[in-house]
Design a protein around this nucleic acid. Sequence first.
DNA 1: CGCATTTGTCAATGATTCGTTGACGTAATG
DNA 2: CATTACGTCAACGAATCATTGACAAATGCG
Lengths: 308, 308
Amino acid sequence: MRWLASWESFVRVVEEGSMAAAARRLDCTRAQVSKQVGELEQAFGVRLFERSTRKLVLTPSGEIFYRHALQALDAVDGAELAVRNVDEVPRGVLRVGASAVFGRQCVAPFVPRLLARYPELECELILSDEREDLAEARLDLALRMTRSPPEDAVSRLLLVLRRVICASPAYLAAHGRPQLPADLTAHQCFSHLLSDGGVWRLRDGQGDEIEVPIHSRLRFNDIGSTLDAVRAGQGIAILPTYLCGDALARGELETLLDVYEPQVDFGRNLYACYLPGRGRLPAVRAFLDEFQAWLSPEPPWERYGRGG
Amino acid sequence: MRWLASWESFVRVVEEGSMAAAARRLDCTRAQVSKQVGELEQAFGVRLFERSTRKLVLTPSGEIFYRHALQALDAVDGAELAVRNVDEVPRGVLRVGASAVFGRQCVAPFVPRLLARYPELECELILSDEREDLAEARLDLALRMTRSPPEDAVSRLLLVLRRVICASPAYLAAHGRPQLPADLTAHQCFSHLLSDGGVWRLRDGQGDEIEVPIHSRLRFNDIGSTLDAVRAGQGIAILPTYLCGDALARGELETLLDVYEPQVDFGRNLYACYLPGRGRLPAVRAFLDEFQAWLSPEPPWERYGRGG
DNA sequence: CGCATTTGTCAATGATTCGTTGACGTAATG
DNA sequence: CATTACGTCAACGAATCATTGACAAATGCG
């Protein structure tokens, strides 16, 4: 039995809804597909499809296998692509989208390294806080912080971002250091207009979430400005470490309430998103590989600024 | 051509260093392996091995394909395991080996969570600093910090461990805070009998490695004792964060020379090792999945103790 | 309800693929 | 220099695979 071909047949049956339709799509016979699926079931010792009705329904085992099979076939395809494209030098213009602050802070410093590595590559970095459509914006790749990456795109989790509560030493000296989340209510805490709606949600080490209503007389929709205000000693804020890591390292800022992990609506995940065909482009693959290498084992902004 | 079988042959050739050795290991003929690799090369249109010398050397394409092939084969194996074991509840006794300190500090606190999740599972945690043979010690799974996991076992990288240079605030107040690696020579630095031989190797942010001869009048082969001595203000040591993270969080210890990353002989990698058949056991898979989830996105001992 | 079409399965069979054998040339080793 | 090991190739038998045709059951349509 051609093992992987059987997996592909099985996956196709699930997608097409019947063996006959899958056979048509695969340009082979119903008998072949039926036999391949039957042999998979025999090999695994489980039923993949219910047989009590003509309407094909996956069994629980079938569902599990379907998901794993997709992943495995994707890995196989990726391997084939990688080896076939190894001699293709990334060239041309790569259009990368990112949010304004993250783009300026993290992607922009990275891109020169990429371009140094691939002399025939050019890059257009499109910074925007709007979730523009990848096709409409003609983006080859978008870096998104979100809980729900675009459904028409391939999304690859690159990194889990960290956020910390921080203030300047001067502010803390003048106003005292909050010891508990509730203490924050007595402090000037900057609100993110776009995300927290005046309530900070902090998760403690046990996974419990504490909500702290905060008030601030100064509110920003640009976290770069929030950073500036915090550094100026005007208050406390939740900031991503990619933004404030340097200031922390230099001692310009200090973190507080470290046991608590700030939660934000759009979550902690940084995704690389690209339209299905774009994954083949050497430039996209080079960007992803180099960017991930750059982020490993931890991002540059986390590599410094460590301490007790 | 049996596609995946060819991939497996190719991977085996890389691992064994020759087609003849791979054929022996695969219990087939040199001609089969040679043909399979040749057909891969034909299919991909690239050379995977250099042919100019009998000594097998991977081409750049071969290296890329090797890494992707491993991943793909692992995904395929994972799919097969997942579908075969879908109905199997982890039960029985799982014997896990780990080093003494890491086991007590990290694995022991984790195991109750695993057992709570799987009521029919029992666990024997075998702590030892000796690299006992998995078969002889009847271990289902061993957690190893090493550069060279056992060759007869499947080894899965779980985590990159961090080590920091630290001392108590009292020690630093009394003796001053080293600003450069060379300053360490004037300090009481605890040596690891088993690893550093009296020389600390520190890597700076540019990847350069600095060697610092240190001396200590007190030497340990047990890093738990080293921790105790450091906390008692007796000196400076390199300690893994899984051991000293709590003390750092409580302010009992402080890190220093944070820009430098300590290097140790056995490296930074934590592997889960198991004999080839054991990977199928539901208990082993449950342990690995739960342990990795527990470690994600970062281990508990790194989740605290953050700051500038 | 009856009929036509579609679907899924099975056995038989021819087509295709695969692994081995034996030979050969080359490299490495003692 | 002799021997052993290795990698490759062609030929061939063994093994596997896909199709065909038949059959029963389900579905859709008039």
